[in-house]
Amino acid sequence: MPELRFDNRVAVITGAGRGLGRTYALLLASRGARVVVNDPGSSISGEDTDAGPAADVVQEIRDAGGEAVACTESVATAEGGRAIIDAAIDAFGRIDVLVHNAGNNRYASLSEMSYADFDAVLDVHLRGAFHVVRAAFPLMCEAGYGRVVLTSSIGGIYGNKNVANYGAAKAGIIGLSNVAALEGYDHGVRSNVIIPAAITRLAEGLDTSAYPPMGPELTAPAVGWLAHESCSITGEMLVSIAGRVARAYIAETEGVYQPEWSVEDVGERIAEIRDTTDSWLLPVVPSGHVDHITKSFALATEGSARVSQSL
């Protein structure tokens, strides 16, 4: 099959100085993309700064014959988000691809988590996603082309202990991507979510001795495809973990219709309510929101008719 390339495309990748982001930047650059390597060089908790990581990746790309510039602004502020996108416009005159990968961690139980630690993680993951999407999205729509890849986590889908801040932020990113997919569709802009798992510095302190191979290079190809013009999906989530690539999706059970409910009724029928036999899968694009309402109303109408006929 022909190689999927990014010639003449400009990609902004946040958190690209190390780990997954670095691997994404090197992959896209090796296939012709001009890359803005964004990374303030912060610690895992999001503190301190170091221009070295972004500069090092830029040098790697240039040494391999590619084009790249560094940007050390933080995604955590609206001003930083705009500056990151401006770096692409100033250096290369356009933006075609946005991969928001920047992240931080601050661990604490839900009972003990401080408001500062909650906000610090949302500022980078969720608000950071909005800050760069808000700056890039209108430019993409005006150009009639764009690929947005936002990073969620299994922690955002299933949760995990001691990371309420992280789980909330990563769940919110799914909603943001869905809106970008809906609003961008008619303008040639596609938005999807990557749910990656790889051994990077964020795994420090964990016993990974029994893990299968989980290097960032196993996740990068899925991100590369989502970022490519041939990407045929939008408003979806791809999981990438230890060589496995899969689709994650949200579904609803068909549920149960009654013209009236009591608290006791819900308890009596909870098994039927939760029965996944005829689940609904409602794609975000073109009309998952409307389909949810339409199908729900249809059940109510059909149920009312059956009740009337039985009287």
Rank of each mutant, 00 (worst) to 15 (best):
P2Y: 06
L4D: 08
R5L: 12
V10K: 02
V12W: 09
I13R: 13
T14P: 14
A16V: 05
G17N: 07
G21N: 08
Y24F: 15
Y24A: 06
L26H: 01
A29P: 04
A29L: 10
S30Y: 12
S30R: 11
R31Y: 13
V35D: 05
N38K: 11
P40I: 01
P40D: 04
S43P: 12
E47S: 10
E47W: 04
E47Y: 05
D50H: 09
D50F: 11
P53G: 10
A55V: 06
V57H: 03
I61Y: 01
R62K: 10
G66L: 08
A70K: 03
C71V: 03
T72V: 15
A76M: 01
A76T: 02
T77E: 13
G80V: 03
I84V: 15
D86Q: 11
A88H: 05
A102K: 01
A102I: 08
Y107N: 15
S114P: 11
A116S: 15
F118D: 02
V124I: 10
G128F: 01
F130W: 14
H131M: 12
V132R: 00
V133Q: 01
V133P: 01
R134C: 07
R134I: 02
A135R: 00
F137K: 04
C141V: 03
A143I: 08
G144I: 05
G146C: 13
R147I: 02
R147C: 10
S152F: 01
G156Q: 00
I157K: 12
G159A: 03
K161E: 05
N162T: 14
V163Y: 03
N165G: 15
A168L: 12
A169N: 04
G172D: 04
G172N: 04
L176K: 01
V179Y: 12
A180P: 00
A181W: 02
G184R: 00
G188E: 04
S191A: 15
I194G: 04
P196I: 05
A197K: 02
T200L: 06
A203K: 05
L206Q: 13
D207Q: 09
D207V: 07
T208S: 12
T208R: 10
S209G: 08
G215Q: 08
L218C: 05
A222W: 05
G224S: 13
G224M: 06
C231N: 12
S232C: 14
S232Q: 14
V239H: 03
A242E: 07
G243P: 08
G243F: 08
R247G: 14
I250R: 07
G255C: 10
V256N: 03
E260K: 13
W261N: 07
W261A: 05
E264I: 01
E264V: 02
D265L: 07
A271R: 10
E272C: 05
I273T: 11
T276I: 14
T276Y: 09
L281W: 05
L282D: 15
V285M: 07
S287R: 04
V290W: 03
I293V: 12
T294M: 13
K295M: 15
L299E: 08
G303P: 03
S304R: 13
R306V: 01
L311Y: 00
